[in-house]
Computed example of a mutant assay.
Amino acid sequence: MKKIALAAALSVAATSAFAGGHSKMGKYSEPVIEPAVVVEETRASSGGIIVPIMLLLIVAAAVATR
């Protein structure tokens, strides 16, 4: 009878000792990786202003010839 009580006490102690170990593995989450920051250098170009200026000059030339 003492062996049964000792086995029961050890099994209760063992299950409570391992109870937290398995649940932590279930709650494992992926490590958070910050996205890489890509910095592009800007070029000083007037390409965005040339087309509208050329369009204005063409329109002004067309109006002046009438």
Score class of each variant (00 low, 15 high):
5 A>S: 07
30 E>Y: 13
53 I>G: 10
24 K>V: 07
25 M>P: 00
31 P>D: 07
57 L>I: 12
12 V>K: 02
23 S>M: 05
47 G>K: 08
44 A>E: 15
63 V>K: 11
59 V>A: 15
17 A>H: 06
25 M>T: 08
34 E>Q: 13
34 E>P: 01
27 K>N: 12
53 I>V: 13
25 M>G: 10
46 S>E: 12
64 A>D: 08
37 V>A: 13
40 E>R: 15
20 G>L: 11
30 E>N: 12
40 E>F: 10
43 R>V: 15
14 A>W: 13
47 G>E: 15
29 S>M: 12
12 V>N: 03
27 K>Q: 11
13 A>Y: 02
27 K>V: 04
39 V>C: 01
49 I>S: 05
35 P>A: 09
39 V>G: 02
28 Y>M: 14
55 L>P: 00
49 I>K: 10
19 A>V: 05
53 I>R: 05
63 V>M: 10
32 V>M: 02
38 V>L: 10
39 V>Q: 06
34 E>V: 08
37 V>C: 02
50 I>C: 04
42 T>D: 14
60 A>E: 07
31 P>M: 05
33 I>L: 07
57 L>D: 07
52 P>K: 03
54 M>V: 15
60 A>H: 04
19 A>Y: 04
11 S>Q: 05
24 K>Y: 06
50 I>M: 13
19 A>D: 00
16 S>L: 12
43 R>Y: 09
14 A>I: 09
34 E>R: 04
55 L>N: 05
13 A>S: 05
24 K>T: 05
59 V>D: 09
23 S>A: 06
17 A>W: 10
10 L>H: 00
33 I>Y: 05
34 E>L: 09
15 T>D: 02
15 T>F: 08
54 M>E: 11
48 G>S: 13
6 L>N: 07
53 I>M: 14
14 A>T: 12
29 S>C: 06
51 V>G: 08
41 E>G: 13
65 T>W: 14
47 G>M: 09
59 V>Q: 04
49 I>C: 03
23 S>K: 10
38 V>M: 05
7 A>E: 02
20 G>I: 03
31 P>L: 05
55 L>W: 01
22 H>K: 03
60 A>R: 02
64 A>L: 11
9 A>C: 02
64 A>G: 07
62 A>L: 10
41 E>F: 07
37 V>I: 14
38 V>D: 03
22 H>Q: 07
12 V>P: 00
64 A>M: 09
35 P>F: 00
15 T>C: 04
11 S>M: 06
20 G>S: 12
9 A>Y: 01
48 G>C: 00
37 V>G: 00
10 L>S: 10
53 I>K: 07
48 G>A: 11
9 A>V: 11
39 V>W: 01
8 A>T: 12
45 S>W: 06
42 T>K: 15
50 I>S: 08
26 G>Y: 02
28 Y>E: 14
17 A>V: 11
23 S>I: 14
17 A>F: 09
55 L>Q: 03
48 G>F: 08
64 A>F: 12
11 S>A: 12
13 A>W: 01
51 V>Q: 11
